[in-house]
Design a protein around this nucleic acid. Structure first.
Lengths: 155, 155
DNA sequence: GCAGAGGTACTCGGATACGCGCTGTCCGAGTAAATTGGG
DNA sequence: CCCAATTTACTCGGACAGCGCGTATCCGAGTACCTCTGC
């Protein structure tokens, strides 16, 4: 899994706390928060924009903000936006090629079924966690974090 | 996830049915079963050998066979052998770098925890399925498959 | 003082190089079987 | 006929190119703000 996923997750979490600001947050500001290459982070934020997870406003005082309230944005949404929606395991039906094709049973590939089940378990676990859950847990462990982030982002 | 995983899974399943043979199965025979590039399949079989999933015997009439009975080989073992044991999501602790480092809460990264939980769900689902389960399901759906594979592999 | 036109600074968006890992191939080391020669 | 040394054929194992995708960067299109001028 690419590093852009980690960046996108943390930046979206920051956007939760910065949503109370009037103005959207530019990519440069988000990059400075975590010492990331600004232009490359911008690329991933574009992917989030295309997927509809965040909304971008161009021009001066532009930037990014969450397109939905944090309760409605799951970690799966962010991952799918950055990594794409294709499944990690792609069955190419090799059982239907070569000599073994004659012995291939009818119906779906059993191996592919098992892989799909496992991947579905992963996707469900990711979809069950929302940005609001993450934010709430962080605020519980260290209540000062959101205000600190807002302060540092506007410096 | 690389294609080698799919190859390894299907070949290990074939090895379950070919385990009743006296002689190990060479990579060329396995490749012919599914019309795969023999040398490249051999490379993945080497990875399975290094991981101890299959055992290789060199020389004439050599080849590969399962190192354990199929009940003790899970799909996770095969995937880990080919893809490596490192987790798909690697937390690089970007919350501790940049301006936000001052606002970083103590304890583990909450996002990383959620990712680990999801990945653990995936690994558990994979580890819960053994080659014996897959083989039994295939044999139930089409009982002639194992004998057909044995016949085609020795042709 | 005020309105409007122009300039300016800032931001997103996509187009452009670079590097690493998966993909694919080849040849050598090693082993077991087959062969051959001698007893 | 039996045995052993040699040859042979076959297999795994690792070393060697090719390519696609993620990584990283830069510059242009577009927008909002600021400034300046005229009334």
């Amino acid at each position: 899994m690419s590093h852009g996923v980690e960046w996108a997750l943390h930046c979206c979490l920051d956007l939760v706390w910065l949503a109370h600001e009037e103005r959207p947050v530019p990519a440069v500001r988000l990059a400075a928060l975590h010492d990331l290459p600004p232009a490359y982070l911008n690329k991933h934020l574009q992917a989030l924009t295309r997927a509809g997870v965040v909304a971008s406003t161009p021009g001066k005082n532009g930037g990014f903000r969450l397109a939905y309230p944090p309760e409605r944005v799951s970690l799966m949404d962010i991952i799918a936006a950055v990594e794409g929606q294709e499944p990690a395991f792609r069955c190419t039906e090799i059982r239907l090629r070569g000599l073994a094709a004659e012995a291939a049973p009818r119906g779906d590939c059993v191996i592919s079924q098992a892989m799909r089940r496992a991947e579905l378990a992963w996707r469900s676990a990711m979809a069950a966690v929302t940005l609001a859950d993450i934010a709430a847990e962080v605020e519980q462990k260290s209540p000062g974090t959101p205000a600190r982030i807002r302060q540092l982002a506007n410096a």
